[in-house]
């Protein structure tokens, strides 16, 4: 399956009192990957600002801007066209011997190291480690992890916060896609499987007409290295991501891919109103 999507992602902030200046970074431009081609993209900001673009350490397109006039609302619109197909996998699989090879561990050290977001308690780590001890292939180990997440974490929004770590989410037992991703990543790393955090959009409708618009959502999922990188979506129990997944950024955890980050001087803001409209174009 190969198709074209138009994505319009708007974020509207309203401030209770005036903001005097603000400094912001936006990571909302889809990536070029082996199964995704970025055809066009643009970011618009209101109030008007000069935009500066660069690619960060993880290869994500970043747009930076600062505002120095008083304002009490801020709108950011990211529009893009992408062509996506289902990822092709070659079926290369790791053996436990390869996984424990020091040169393998070194090459993937960036995605094997625990970060603040991807910490789990020693108890949880040893529980998952012992549950995979008799399992041979990387992919079977992955299944064990997915199973563990399914049993111990349930989807509910409004309980965890943007700063919650994997262990906090596991303690509560509830979370959103960000927490599912962090917990899954933490467990995968603890059993020696390199894992990374992916942010992007998920198309909600399986088989739309050309020209049909749907309300999409910002989403987060996981890529794991089992001999090659494959995408899984733990919060939707999807064991292979497909053409419905639009990749924007990849990193060690949420901190590396944050879609919008800013500091500003002035009044408190209300939670933003975010809309993602996705339209099939071909």
């Amino acid at each position: 399956m190969k198709w074209r999507l138009e994505i319009v992602h708007t974020t509207k902030y309203t401030y209770q009192e005036d903001v005097y200046s603000s400094y912001n970074e936006v990571r909302m431009t889809p990536k070029n990957t082996s199964n995704q081609l970025l055809l066009s993209s643009s970011i618009a900001v209101s109030p008007r600002a000069s935009l500066y673009n660069y690619f960060d350490y993880f290869g994500t397109a970043v747009t930076y801007f600062d505002l120095h006039r008083r304002h009490n609302n801020l709108d950011i619109t990211s529009s893009s066209h992408v062509e996506i197909e289902d990822p092709r996998t070659r079926g290369v699989r790791l053996s436990p011997i390869e996984m424990s090879d020091p040169s393998f561990m070194d090459a993937f050290s960036e995605y094997l190291t625990t970060t603040t977001y991807t910490q789990v308690s020693n108890g949880v780590a040893s529980q998952i480690q012992s549950s995979v001890s008799s399992v041979e292939t990387a992919e079977d180990r992955l299944s064990k992890v997915v199973e563990f997440v399914r049993e111990n974490l349930h989807y509910r929004s409004g309980i965890t916060m943007v700063s919650s770590s994997a262990s906090e989410a596991l303690d509560i037992g509830f979370g959103v896609c960000q927490d599912f991703a962090h917990v899954t990543i933490a467990l995968l790393r603890s059993i020696g499987l390199p894992a990374r955090y992916v942010s992007g959009y998920l198309y909600p409708n399986k088989d739309p007409e050309v020209g049909e618009s749907s309300t999409g959502e910002s989403h987060a999922w996981v890529e794991v290295f089992v001999g090659e990188w494959i995408g899984i979506d733990p919060s939707n129990c999807v064991d292979r991501t497909n053409h419905l997944y639009v990749t924007v950024a990849k990193g060690r955890d949420y901190g590396d891919v944050t879609p919008f980050r800013g500091v500003y001087f002035g009044g408190q803001s209300s939670p933003p109103i975010v809309t993602v409209t996705m339209t099939r174009r071909a």
Binding site: D56, D106, A107, S109, T113
Partner: peptide, 18 residues
């Protein structure tokens, strides 16, 4: 040198990696 000398260094600044 091993990669982890860098990727695991607390002072390795990904934000300033340019």
């Amino acid at each position: 040198i091993p990669k982890r000398l860098i990727s695991n260094a607390t002072q390795f600044s990904r934000a300033a990696s340019f």
